[in-house]
């Protein structure tokens, strides 16, 4: 890899965009930056995954601190779910050290496709649920009540205080564990899984789920980063511009995020992920079987 102005500028620019979308959509940015590094910059999958997971900490710090300041984050919920995500991340990153590159590409494509679909199929639910006041009226399960997991935040788009009761703590923790596994293995924050787990099964409004997920992502990613660091997979010359770019992008994205309606967010998210899933699938088939799928761009 020759370290030139052009290379650094392009990588920085791409990372800015990934961080911006990441913060805007609450998905950590890894889901965008890994395909960009692999498809556009032709970097090895494992180097991309390791660099991405470090930059995911950067976006979590930048985005996470802003949500903490705006009180959108539910700190208790974050701490509770982090037990599951960190344990998952440890398992996932150990797997990543031993998996074949093409298999990681394929898994990444499947994850992107699933998450794109999940975001699309739930795009209208949130605004309606806020308007009806559903989030306040739910009944907590025993674990959620014991841990006092309820919360509230001010929604700038709906122009009101949104209070919510958390339930489904056991299933939420289970999905969070899977999110941690995916995070460690594929270098993503796992934000999409965590956000949809909180939003669908734990009765947490989308924006509170995004803010809480952002904070958790940093802790989850730190666990995988420690492992990748020791393995020598975290390449500083790749990490530095990527982390700087994602931090800059995430800062801007976070400022915009609370002003947008959830349905718009989810639309952009699903389109972009379908596109990237196709690219990663094409690369996996090429590496393993030598099959050429038509490439959509670059």
């Amino acid at each position: 890899m020759t370290y030139t102005y052009q290379f650094v500028a392009a990588l920085f620019g791409a990372a800015c965009l990934a961080g911006f979308f990441g913060a805007l959509l609450g998905v950590g940015g890894g889901i965008f930056i890994v395909p960009v590094m692999v498809l556009m910059f032709q970097l090895p999958m494992k180097i991309a995954v390791a660099a991405s997971i470090v930059s995911v900490i950067a976006t979590s710090n930048a985005g996470g601190s802003a949500y903490v300041e705006q009180r959108i984050t539910n700190l208790r919920l974050a701490m509770f779910l982090e037990i599951a995500t960190t344990a998952g991340a440890l398992g996932g990153s150990i797997l990543a050290l031993y998996l074949h590159e093409w298999l990681m590409l394929l898994l990444f494509a499947i994850m992107l496709a699933y998450m794109g679909w999940a975001a699309y199929s739930t795009r209208n639910l949130d605004d309606e649920r806020i308007a009806r006041g559903d989030f306040e009226r739910a009944r907590p399960d025993r674990l959620s009540a014991f841990l006092d997991l309820r919360g509230d935040y001010y929604d700038q788009a709906a122009r009101r205080e949104v209070a919510y009761v958390v339930n489904g703590a056991p299933i939420g923790a289970g999905i969070a564990g899977l999110a941690g596994l995916a995070s460690g293995m594929l270098g993503v924050g796992g934000g999409v899984l965590k956000v949809s787990a909180m939003n669908r099964y734990m009765n947490v409004p989308m924006k509170a789920a995004v803010g809480t997920s952002k904070l958790m992502i940093g802790v989850t990613a730190a666990v995988s980063s420690i492992l990748f660091f020791m393995a020598g997979l975290i390449h500083f010359y790749v990490v530095a511009p990527v982390a700087l770019g994602t931090t800059a992008g995430a800062t801007v994205g976070t400022m915009v995020m609370n002003r947008l309606h959830s349905a718009v967010l989810k639309w952009i998210l699903s389109l972009l992920m379908a596109y990237l899933a196709y690219g990663m699938l094409a690369k996996a088939l090429l590496e393993r079987f030598g099959v050429h799928l038509p490439v959509l761009a670059g």
Partner: peptide, 24 residues
Amino acid sequence: MAASTLLFAAGVILALLHPTYVPL
């Protein structure tokens, strides 16, 4: 965030003063 951002920026600038080949 502030400390790591400054160190990364310093590193990238130093690296670009003398662009070289870096092994992966």
